[in-house]
Structures are given as structure tokens and as C-alpha cells.
Design a protein around this nucleic acid. Structure first.
Lengths: 135, 135
DNA sequence: CGCATATCCGTGCTACCGTACGGATATGGC
DNA sequence: GCCATATCCGTACGGTAGCACGGATATGCG
């Protein structure tokens, strides 16, 4: 591909360069978004938002996924600090983290869901019908 | 891993099962989130939000990425219906789609960015320092 | 008409993600 | 103490995403 050394609109390029989100922030933000960009993890968060807390096996049962998948997804969310655990005997109960901005994120997700319905409906991106997420 | 046939808290499992987001919706939503879960695409959207429209080469220049990467990212966003194009001669100008909920999404991203700063700061997820996003 | 340029497209490669499997660890019950 | 169970962990593997490279296409310019 050509190297394109000559900007077409130098002024706008400068404005964009100056104001665009930095690579550091973009990395963190996209990392978080990528973390949410998984059917299992999104549904885990939704489920935990519904019921205060639930253990790994019950979450797997509720979502119709293997305990491995639930455990893996929960570990990712926990590593990112989005959920926290309470251990009671052999059972580990997961819940949304105290710092979790429930209403905000729920609002965001609801709106993004609406957007996804009209924007990317016909594009079978990852996990739309490829995996059996339920039952 | 054990099969866990006996739910610990059957009531909550039922509640979670009934109210949790469906697999269909989860697929679309996570697909959209995964689409946003890429440093290049997030920054492309930010840049397009700053300046009304910009062509591929200038966007690559502004973000310090190759034109291939810009073209690829823009194609993804266009396929999902998040951006639209205007062709003028050889140059293709990209802008946010008319249906793009600017203030909403911007608000969401800003808040998520804040969340990412305190939640996943110490976890080098994808793209934090792995890729050269700028310069 | 021939050349330069802006963008797209097909292909191949590398890296990584999510899952399954087997085993390890911890805890409770008998 | 011994066994069952809930969860985690290490490993291996299939699938796929994102990028580079070369070429194709289209358009402006002389």
C-alpha cells in the first residue's frame, strides 16, 4: 500500500492528532470493552446484576454453560476488578464489585444493545448464532 | 470438572435463568462491544467524533498507524453500520453514521474509560503496551 | 493515452482467545 | 481419617482476529 506522505486535509489531521484519545487510554478502554465483548461474560454480569450473588456452579447452571466456561469468565472479570468473591466453605459466591457502577453500565449496555439491534443485526459477528449459550 | 447436578440456591438460579439476557441479544451486544474492543477502532471513532470527516490516509496519519490498519478498522466499523462514507474522486471520506448516538456513546465510553483507569490499570490486557498505536 | 495516487481486496502468517480435559487443592460430612 | 464435592489451575488445541504484503481497481492529471 502506498505510503501517503501528503495529508489531504492537514488542519483536520492536526486537530485529530491533538484531541484523539491517547494510545495508553485507548489500550485500557479497549481492553475493558474487549472484556465485555464476550457473550458469556456479558451474561454473567447480567445474571449477577439480577441476583445479588451466586456461586460458580449455579451460574453455569443458570446460563446453560459449562463450569469451566463460567469459572474462566468469572476469573477474567475478577482479574479486571469487575466482580468480587465471598468464600463460604467450599462454595465461592460471586457478586458485582463494590466499585461497579451498576446503573451506569446497565444503562450503557441497554443502549448499546438497542444500537446493536439496528446496526449490526445482519452481521453474524462472534457468538451470535455460532454457540449454544442457553439450554 | 464435576458436573454439579445439584444447585445450591435453586430460587436464585431460576430468577437468573428467567431474567438474564438471552443468547441472541448477548451475541449481538457482545459483538458490538468486541468491535469497540480494539484500540485502533476506538481511536478511529474518537477521531471521527472530533473532526466531522476524514479520509483513510489522513486518519492513518493522525493516529500514527498504517493505512492498512486504518482501512481494515474502518471497514469493520462500516460493516457494522457505525460509520459511513462519502466518495469524492479518489478519496473516500469517513464520518460517523447518521444513526450514530454520539452523545450517548461518548458518555458511555468516557465513563468506561474512567472505570478502566481504576479497575484494570495493572492488568496489561490487549493492546496496552503490546502494540505501537502512536508514532 | 499513460502515469501517479487513494483505496480496496485476496492471501498468508502470527498471536491470542476461549474451551475442554485432567489433575490439584480445599473443605465438609460420615 | 476417608471420601465426596466445589472450585481452581496447567496444558493443549481449534478457531479466529488483525496486520503485512502484493496486486487490482478507479480516478485525477498532464
Amino acid at each position: 500500500m502506498a505510503d501517503h506522505e501528503h495529508p489531504v486535509d492537514a488542519a483536520r489531521v492536526r486537530r485529530a492528532r491533538a484531541g484523539v484519545i491517547g494510545a495508553e487510554d485507548a489500550g485500557r478502554l479497549s481492553g475493558l470493552l474487549a472484556l465485555l465483548g464476550d457473550p458469556v461474560r456479558v451474561r454473567l454480569l447480567y445474571a449477577l446484576d439480577l441476583v445479588d450473588e451466586l456461586c460458580v456452579g449455579d451460574l453455569a447452571l443458570a446460563l446453560g454453560i459449562t463450569e469451566d466456561a463460567a469459572s474462566y469468565g468469572l476469573r477474567m472479570l475478577r482479574t479486571a476488578g469487575l466482580v468480587q468473591t465471598r468464600k463460604d466453605g467450599r462454595v465461592v459466591y460471586y457478586r458485582l464489585a463494590d466499585t461497579f457502577p451498576e446503573p451506569l453500565l446497565e444503562h450503557c449496555l441497554r443502549e448499546l444493545l438497542r444500537l446493536s439491534e439496528l446496526a449490526g443485526a445482519e452481521h453474524p459477528k462472534r457468538g451470535s448464532s455460532r454457540r449454544k449459550l442457553v439450554r
